[in-house]
Computed example of a mutant assay.
Amino acid sequence: MGEPTRLTSPDRVVFEGAGYTKQDVVEYYRAVADWMLPELARRPLSLVRCPDGAAGQCFFQKHYAESLGDDVRSIDLMQKSGVEPYLYVDDIEGVTDLVQMNALEFHPWGSRIEDPERPDRLVFDLDPGEGTGWPDVLRGARDVRDRLRKLGLENFVRLSGGKGVHVVVPIAPGPSWDDARAFSDAFANHMAVQAPARYVATMSKAKRPGKIFIDWLRNARGATSVASWSLRARQGGPVAVPIRWEELGRVDGPAAFDLRAARRRAARMRKDPWEGFETLAQTLPVIG
């Protein structure tokens, strides 16, 4: 572990309107670290960095650089262009280093650095198209939940902090990325075929109005999904918050928690809303 990060420009406002500063961001991540790190640590990461705050120009970064900080780690991963250095963190000090470098969002792989070619979770992102409301998203999320359960897969729900919700499925490492992608593709397309007026499983924006896009494409090698407890680089400082299925109908939207509200929730929690997630050793079924 390197020396504790010295935060530069701690009073700089990162989320205009809400008034949250860079110091607020660091203190938030330290406050939720115990809940966030199990999903974040020791996984290849992509970041959303916003040097001019959430309202400015932001960019994704997935490659390691020494300038990111002493507690940010590097892992070499094979890509089509050859071996490339990706980044990951072990602990909250690494997260703090990345916030110092203006990282706001954290998007981990669905696999760990110890076995990056074997995913241990799947994510289905329910992205509502134009003309689709929050009640439609709730209905869709519960439909995904129930269909997965019929296949023997327990699953968990997260408010995305953006437009929709994520349904997350823990699996035992073993399937390849190709296996994970094939299952996710078949599952989402099966839903779209059975309920074409409600769902679409392709990225085509022309097909999305009035429907929910079941985004299964995050379940591919190198694709990522935002981590639970991660801030989103959006107005107001919303957070991607894991909740219990029983809570879903009591929230008013996917960005129901901002930085302050998410921090309060984390402080009050005595039990993980995703209790049991890490110990579920589920196997992927075959979709006939």
Results as ranks from 00 to 15, higher is better:
T8E: 15
D34H: 14
G249T: 10
V72A: 02
V193D: 12
P128M: 01
C58R: 03
S176K: 07
G222H: 11
V239W: 02
L47Y: 00
R260S: 11
A262E: 02
A267R: 12
L87I: 06
S184L: 07
D179R: 06
G129H: 09
R268L: 15
E39K: 05
K205M: 11
R30F: 11
S184H: 07
W177G: 04
L126G: 06
Q282F: 00
A182Y: 03
V123D: 00
V167N: 08
N189F: 14
A197E: 14
Q194R: 15
G164M: 09
E84K: 07
S230H: 05
H107W: 14
L122E: 05
P85H: 04
R142C: 05
E130N: 06
V226C: 10
L231E: 09
G237R: 03
T5H: 07
R250F: 10
E27V: 07
A281G: 11
R147L: 08
S46E: 03
H166V: 10
Y29D: 11
E275W: 13
V226L: 13
G56C: 03
L87N: 02
D179N: 08
V72S: 05
T132W: 02
D143Y: 10
E247T: 08
L45G: 01
S46C: 03
D34K: 14
S228D: 12
I212C: 14
H190P: 00
S111N: 13
Q235P: 02
M269H: 02
D71H: 09
M191K: 01
R6M: 15
P119C: 04
D34V: 12
L280N: 09
G69E: 00
K62S: 10
F59Y: 15
D146N: 14
Y28T: 08
I212L: 15
A233Q: 07
K211F: 06
F15D: 11
A141T: 10
P196A: 05
Y20S: 11
D11W: 06
Y20G: 11
L104W: 05
W229H: 13
